[in-house]
Design a protein around this nucleic acid. Structure first.
Lengths: 202, 202, 202, 202
DNA sequence: GTCTAACCGAGACGGTACGTCTAGTCTTATC
DNA sequence: GATAAGACTAGACGTACCGTCTCGGTTAGAC
């Protein structure tokens, strides 16, 4: 049996933890994920390397934690806007997402994490649980409200619906198959919603 | 002025080129992309490192080339099946894609390339031009045929349509937000197509 | 002015002191001096590292103390054997020394300390005062007795004499220039004594 | 069987070799052996660490090589002075040795190597073969000449003789049991030679 | 059919970062 | 206040690869 001699979290230095996350964030934005090194993080944070390795298993885990600390509360318990017009609301939200993706800092950060989760199931799970899951859930909530309002078919598959929408923009963003414009966001929402609307009796 | 002293492609050793691509492919599947090294490729291919650097700028470029060599002809001039039933045809095609994604070798290889293009615009361009573009075009061709057959609305936005479909499955595949089952492929096609069908007049 | 905040020796834990010295001794013999670490000593002694640093300035000081505790009393107030035959007595003593040097535990321990005093004058002083000085003194005492017995010249330089003898064996032992056999001990005593004997008048 | 993939000495960079030895020498004198690090040597020599590890197994091996390179030729094929008076000649030589030991650079360097050979048999062997052996041999040669000249007994044990002499001064030097003065050198030679002289017949 | 420049395999090189280890200090809770 | 425990900053360890740079040894047009 494996007895790794786990460190005692009660003794953990909050000051160091903060310094590491902040340094990681600053550096990944400054030099990019590929050129981000544990040594640089430790140096900038004024921390021994061992302190990083004690609490995180990898560079990717540090950066994911840093991002999560950043977006903490963003999706905490908020909801999407609900003006009564689901199409307008979704377009608004999606345009905001695209705008984020156009922000260099967001772009660098999220590409880093998404790159990393390709090779680390534990990170994938955490990413899904703490970031992507809540985000999709928000949209599903909005669609559910639309369902109750009769704007969307009773039997609509909301899981698929949100993935149609977000999948499209992530596809373009990650694979670079086309420009990420607000106009594109609108078209995606248009055609995705088009299939969700209640059918006239018949 | 930049005088790179470009190598003369006429003198390029075809034997070495093949050995490098084969070695890269074998190794990336064997040890994963992260642990793939230029030295290992050179060693396995029985080739000097310089020979690799002479013809490729980076590890990612080698692997992309290796993949492209693999899938050469796959999408060359073929078309998607056309049984007259666009829904069935697309489901068939999408199920096949998901099956590929479930194949460890494909999975490792494609994640490697997609990871890589996040940090290299030149690779992104090549990937889009030689792999993703043609793939999307095939589906659009099939949808155009469906349009002609009246199964899909005249004004349907086919660019968006194919990205709704492929975006969904790539989203799940890359972000790990859910299982990639054949049943899921069907649901995606169902709801994506649902919005594309011609509306009854009025 | 230097205010080191010296610890209060009155409160020193005798139990810890013993445990540390014992652990140090065991470990240095087990793994060798180079691989001996303060952490290992602390761990084996069931003692905090700080407790070691509080009472000893360095690893070498601990080991020297451990050795001194070991050989405590050995040279305390004893004398060398005196059978009346100074040559035989010295050979006996020197053979015993060589035998010790052949004992792995003694060897490891003493090499450790001798290594250490090369870089620490305080340790050198302590080593000389508590270990080497008394040892040389014993031999000088025996030679003085031989002088009184007329076996050794009145004017013989006893300081030099004992260093001729011990210097030879330490030289071989530390520099590895030849085997440390009993026969070698005899030859050393033979030729060293040879120059010390009283000259026939003239 | 062990196949370490040995480097090819033919390809060895002489420039790097020299730079490493010089840097090691400078640094060991500057900061002492204990604080000498491979990284510092590499840095000062303008060399990758791997280049050091490729050709030397340890820090001690580098320093020994550096010293050997220094004293190259010193003992190459030279002989000790021979004025006809063996006592005077040996005193001269021994005083010179003591003077060296008083030179801080020599002192630091030789203590480093002697420290090191306590833990590395391979270094001990090399040290003996290339440095100590030749040195002792020189003195033995001089004593042999004295034998031929009738100043030393026919049956004198020259191996023991030189070790009596050098052993004494190394003992004081390494164990710090007394001052290393020219006067001490004289006394050592006096009493060591005293036992070697031919006995008057009878 | 030579010549000769470019490519080739090999691998040493100067570097950078890795992840581990230990030093010596600092912190916390216990006795 | 000394202690056991152990987290902390610091920095060297020895290894792995990077991408560049020689080295001879082919090898393929140009003469």
């Amino acid at each position: 049996m494996r007895t790794e001699k786990a460190p005692n979290p009660a003794r953990r230095s909050e000051r160091s933890r903060q310094a590491i996350l902040t340094a990681a964030l600053d550096l990944v934005i400054e030099v990019g994920y590929r050129k981000l090194t544990m040594e640089a993080i430790a140096g900038k944070a004024g921390v021994g390397k061992q302190t990083i390795y004690r609490w995180w298993p990898s560079k990717g885990a540090v950066v994911l934690d840093a991002i999560l600390a950043l977006s903490q509360g963003d999706t905490g318990d908020s909801t999407l806007p609900d003006t009564g017009d689901v199409e307008a609301d979704l377009k608004l939200v999606l345009r905001a997402s695209l705008e984020e993706m156009g922000d260099r800092r967001f772009d660098v950060l999220y590409r880093a994490v998404i790159t990393e989760i390709q090779y680390d199931p534990a990170l994938t799970e955490e990413m899904g649980r703490r970031l992507l899951g809540p985000m999709l859930e928000l949209s599903k909530d909005r669609l559910r409200a639309a369902q109750r309002a009769g704007q969307i078919a009773e039997n609509a598959d909301l899981d698929v619906a949100v993935e149609l929408i977000y999948g499209s923009v992530y596809y373009r963003w990650l694979l670079g198959t086309g420009p990420l414009t607000a106009e594109y966001a609108d078209r995606v929402v248009d055609w995705a919603l088009n299939g969700l609307r209640p059918r006239p009796a018949g």
